[in-house]
Design a protein around this nucleic acid. Structure first.
Lengths: 314, 314
DNA sequence: CGTTCTTACGTGTGTCGTAACGATC
DNA sequence: GATCGTTACGACACACGTAAGAACG
């Protein structure tokens, strides 16, 4: 068996089972990939692919298994190559980050600015997906780091590092009636239509639980994955916005007023996830350190408390 | 990079850094291995090996890392090949078991007899080592299963299955004075010189702890790794023997008398350990099931209690 | 009829084996 | 001088690429 065969298999699976696309990605002609795949099937003595006529459409059960092992094997090989590249002080490479939340975009820019200053030749890729997809990407080796607020499943081959904590803030247009009413409680919030994150993104379940504990059921007038969308609808008067504290930028959001809500909701932790067994190149370790020591952007609301308690291990 | 290079590297490390031996194991001539290794170093751009003159003596720090990844990569490749072999209903193969204890030899024979009946063409290899070595062998992929009584470190990539439980028994020559004294307590045991397992093998620490809890310090006159050795010295009058219950064979040990001690010491569990991520061939799964459902040989002492509580997951 | 995959065939790279050389004990 | 590792060279195998053929929409 040959690594080329495994690369062909993985490329095929990653390109919708199009031999042509796989070949392009591998920088070889179609027939080469076709031959490799045929040879792999022949050597293993298994039908790996589902076919409709000559077209490949998917994997047989055995093919699925083989794909998993092939991905891992190639991942190990990548680690080996990385050991070499790193030792040669090669400063070129790719840093791949997968993240769900616009929230992470509040911190990442500053981290990546510093990162770019140190490693200007490393190209940065940012992938997106649902929390579950993120962990898959990391497990696959399709990305180096995932940034999650909620860790759905605990895969033992993944390292999870708790980084900075965050909580929610209230954002409303200036002179909104709620600003005159005190104290700021869940009951008070419950009187207004809310604009906040969609379920699944952000720890939305805990958001609802906080209300439910008081027997309240918040009216969510509109929800979105993107904080900017939420702000837009708050400006348009759809309701009062509940967003992550670090997503509020006093400069760009000067037309909104923010109020701390950390006394009403539990604190959330942003987690950096990566594969325990993968070799980390120097610049990847640098990113890890930079992100771990990162503080979210200075919190937008003046009454927000100091946020300590960062960077525990999981 | 090529799998041949990785195979050469691993074979080299597994054969005392003798290129000649590595080549023999790989069934190629020395020069071929030499070339592969040189090519690997060249491609990675790293000095992987420590050399004394032309002789290879060990690995550089980078080499050590590469070796780890290479082992894992090859292990994944093995899984792929196994998927093929298994699907073809190929009944030939190797079952590799690593174990510390003579204790396991009490159960393994029966399990392996049944196993051999079902898969007569599978050749069985039994390796030995210290508990720590066993886990290394499994992690390396050098063995398929390890049988341990004490799991020292918890490697997340290993699956640990609790199998049958065991405890100690007392073995003495017939008409030994201790047989007339009741009740059988730690204090009583403490009066006699003991013959038992060496520390590290068997959960010897718990053995000592049981005494220590009563402020007692047993006099161990002689200790050994092998139960047969212990019995020999018990016969020779060195002291009273404390061995694992399943290590007593009423037929072969008819010249000794056994008494249950499970009321004096905590129960121990035998654990079967294997790599979570490795593909298990059909016959390997069969072994797993056979061993899990295995009972130790009918306990040798009549007053031993029924032993339930087998086969929990860890 | 274009797209996609397979099959056939020629070319070149690379790997193995034989063998000579160099080094070390 | 015997053993072990490296280097040189020839033979063979194999993977890629070009190109022609087959199936599908």
């Amino acid at each position: 068996m040959d690594l080329r065969q495994l690369r062909s298999l993985v490329a095929l699976a990653d390109n919708g089972f199009s031999v042509t696309s796989a070949a392009q990605r591998l920088h070889v002609v179609q027939s080469a990939v076709s031959q490799q795949l045929a040879r792999l099937e022949e050597e293993l003595g298994i039908r790996l692919f589902l076919r409709v006529g000559k077209r490949l459409t998917g994997l047989s059960p055995e093919g699925e298994r083989v794909l998993i092992y092939a991905r891992r094997a190639l991942s190990e090989v990548t680690s080996i190559l990385d050991v070499g590249r790193d030792h040669l002080l090669e400063t070129r490479g790719v840093l791949r980050i997968a993240t769900t939340h616009t929230q992470a975009c509040c911190v990442l820019p500053r981290v990546l600015t510093e990162f770019r200053r140190r490693y200007p030749e490393v190209s940065i890729e940012i992938h997106q997906g649902t929390p579950h997809q993120l962990l898959d990407l990391v497990s696959n080796g399709s990305t180096d780091f995932a940034i999650c607020t909620e860790v759905v499943e605990i895969n033992p081959s993944l390292t999870v590092v708790r980084c900075y904590r965050w909580n929610r803030i209230l954002v409303v247009p200036p002179r909104h009636e709620i600003l005159n009413r005190r104290p700021l409680t869940l009951e008070l919030l419950n009187e207004y239509p809310l604009v906040t994150y969609v379920f699944g993104f952000s720890a939305e379940s805990r958001f609802r639980t906080s209300f439910a504990r008081l027997g309240l059921a918040p009216r969510v007038a509109l929800s979105a994955v993107d904080t900017e969308v939420i702000k837009t609808y708050v400006r348009a008067g759809f309701g009062v916005g509940v967003i992550a504290d670090m997503a509020f930028d006093p400069e760009r959001d000067g037309d909104l007023v923010a109020r701390d809500l950390s006394h009403l909701f539990p604190w959330e932790s942003v987690r950096l996830v990566y594969r325990r067994d993968k070799f980390l190149r120097r610049y990847q370790e640098t990113f890890l350190e930079l992100f771990q020591s990162a503080e979210p952007r200075t919190r937008g609301c003046l009454d927000a408390p100091a946020v300590g308690d960062k960077g525990g291990e999981a």
